[in-house]
Write a protein that binds this DNA or RNA. Structure first.
Lengths: 209, 209
DNA sequence: GCGATAACTTGTCAATGTCTAGATACCTGG
DNA sequence: CCAGGTATCTAGACATTGACAAGTTATCGC
């Protein structure tokens, strides 16, 4: 894809005018991850370019391969991190509110605030879903999605699927701007209102609001 | 329903022994679309290659550009066709059953049976969402999603969003194999069961619970 | 110190998207 | 019937990309 409107030459060893960049970046892996997240927010995972990330980080075009192997390796790392952070988010929401609805709201809030992670996590063809770190993190997040409902008596797995589907669909439709604008631009509020249609008689009273 | 492209000898440029392929393909546009749908089912929209499509159709590498301009043009055509067919599907379901739930089930069935279309339609960064044909078809499909609920008295747009989110989330999670396998592999049946949790007091009550 | 090793660079190659120019078949008007 | 025009397709070229191989430089363990 020669999509770049302007062709910037590959990594220049030194910043223009600044002090010479040290040979070792220091935390290139983290810097490349962050650059990737920025790039994905800007243009989606499909338009991601390893060489562009290298330029953003000020390193040579082949440096990313050293840390991630290849493009799928980078995206696998992003997916794993995303599932880890999602698990933390859902766990906190459940612990702090005891409300199944608030777990769903937290899911939507995560998608909106970690858009790049979220867009990668649910596109398995972009990365390696069987990567151990990915599989572990995904399993943890999944158990937190099903867990709260499994705790309640007479749990039906289809109820959890309904809840997960609702918040997942809302999150993806919101991210893709497929919802009517008159619903406002606050995904969290929208999630709380919309999810109420499903959760209304299945919830403990929330302790926090 | 979308029958494969035939009636044209799929000869490769230097096909050994066969009759020489005619200079004009006959229906190259349709053949390229079908090849693209096949390729997307195999590897996702991100791994789509125009040159690969040209090889599949037995034409030169630049032939696709003549019909679609560029890659985004091809994907725009796929998205437009997808929204058109989705609108037909939803319209039929509503007319034939008069059931919100069955419209939702039809949505999931469409996603499963038109996987390639569906995967493109909801990735606006891959195509040109403002393309007139796309915008028109998308608006038609959207009105059929909101229409049935808007007809009923005291319609709340958030109810429609809840319904759309549920079936959309279920469809995407099913396509990405993110649902527990013990729920079976029939998306239509799963949709009918799961959607019952939301539609239950707005529609014919489902058997369960 | 000093060798081992990790981190990064440079060079290269096949593949891709897109552009330009040219070749070929169809088709309409006379 | 046939001549020119146009739609369709081919051929070539170029910049960009992902991946690989081999070399260079800094850091770390001992």
């Amino acid at each position: 894809m020669p999509a770049g409107p302007e062709a910037v030459p590959d990594a220049v060893p030194n910043d223009a005018g600044g002090a010479p960049r040290p040979y070792h970046h220091g935390d290139l892996r983290r810097a490349l991850m962050q650059a990737a997240l920025d790039a994905i927010v800007e243009g989606g995972p499909a338009n991601l370019s390893l060489r562009d990330l290298a330029r953003r980080a000020g390193v040579s075009h082949a440096a990313p391969a050293h840390h991630f192997g290849d493009k799928a390796g980078l995206l696998s790392a992003i997916a794993a991190e995303g599932f880890e952070r999602l698990a933390v988010t859902l766990d906190q929401a459940w612990r702090q509110t005891g409300s199944f609805l608030e777990v769903g709201v937290a899911y939507v809030r995560f998608a909106a605030s970690h858009r790049a992670h979220f867009e990668v996590m649910f596109r398995p063809e972009l990365y390696r879903p069987d990567d151990p770190a990915v599989a572990r993190a995904r399993a943890a997040a999944r158990s937190l999605l099903y867990g709260p409902l499994a705790d309640s008596s007479g749990a039906d797995p289809r109820a959890a699927v309904a809840a997960w589907s609702l918040v997942h669909g809302l999150a993806t439709l919101w991210l893709n701007r497929n919802l009517p604008p008159q619903l406002g631009d606050d995904p969290e509020q929208l999630a709380r209102e919309v999810a109420g249609y499903l959760f209304r008689d299945r919830d403990r009273p929330p302790r926090a609001r």
